[in-house]
Amino acid sequence: MARTISTRRKVIVSAIAWLIGLTLFFPILWTFLTSFKTEGTAIAMPPRFLFFDWTLENYQTVQTRSNYFRHFSNSVITAVGSTIIGLIIAIPAAWAMAFSPTKRTKDVLLWMLSTKMLPAVGVLVPIYLIFRDLRLLDTHIGLIIVLTMINLPIIVWMLYTYFKEIPVDILEASRMDGASLRQEIIYVLTPMAIPGIASTMLLNIILAWNEAFWTLNLTTTRAAPLTAFIASYSSPEGLFWAKLSAASTLAIAPILIMGWFSQKQLVRGLTFGAVK
């Protein structure tokens, strides 16, 4: 048995931990609070923390002035779309690697991960030119293609680690029961792997949602997701803190909630299994 920890020590440690936790979280909290201020209050000195006139005006202005909802839906379409297409391509591949491995499987997997490590600038010019010529710039499809490809290695990898945990017996049983390969994957493997597939989906939506190299470089207005939209606030004439905060709050809230649910998957997905 571990020795009993003195309550006093626990109180001190807790206080320090809470202080650090709140400090790290503060910019997010501050953004949230500022989004309910008027522009005047937002830049007021000394800053107002809780005692100000709360207003929802910023949220309305952000929508009416810049069609916020369109950028939000661009983010949803590209993040969800690329994740689903990625899953459709990755599920069969991960099945093959997990249940019918060959001597080369490990190499293929590592090679796939290595493509994730390719710096984006290394291929910025050709991708930009190809997209320009194929008229894919500033389109949903173009962005979905790019996001699918950059996240595909992580999707394959995560699914592979989840599939490895499913006993082969059960898949063989389905083969004995007369299931074709397609039926085996649809009726047996996929339902069993749903928790794993769901976590993979969650993490990849987060990654795609926050992707800020290709989204900034390949979109301008029509297909611009929230990353690019928020970036437009960097210009000096766009310095409206309360509106920036309202737009930011809406942009990070859904992903923050998803992220909190996917802490464990984050470790699994982003360390490629090197940390357990």
Binding site: L24, N210, A212, I252, W260
Partner: peptide, 15 residues
């Protein structure tokens, strides 16, 4: 503590 990781880069930089 984990929250900042999920904030999109453009938002965190501007905030």
């Amino acid at each position: 503590v984990i929250a900042p990781f999920f904030v999109m880069p453009t938002v965190s930089a501007l905030v």
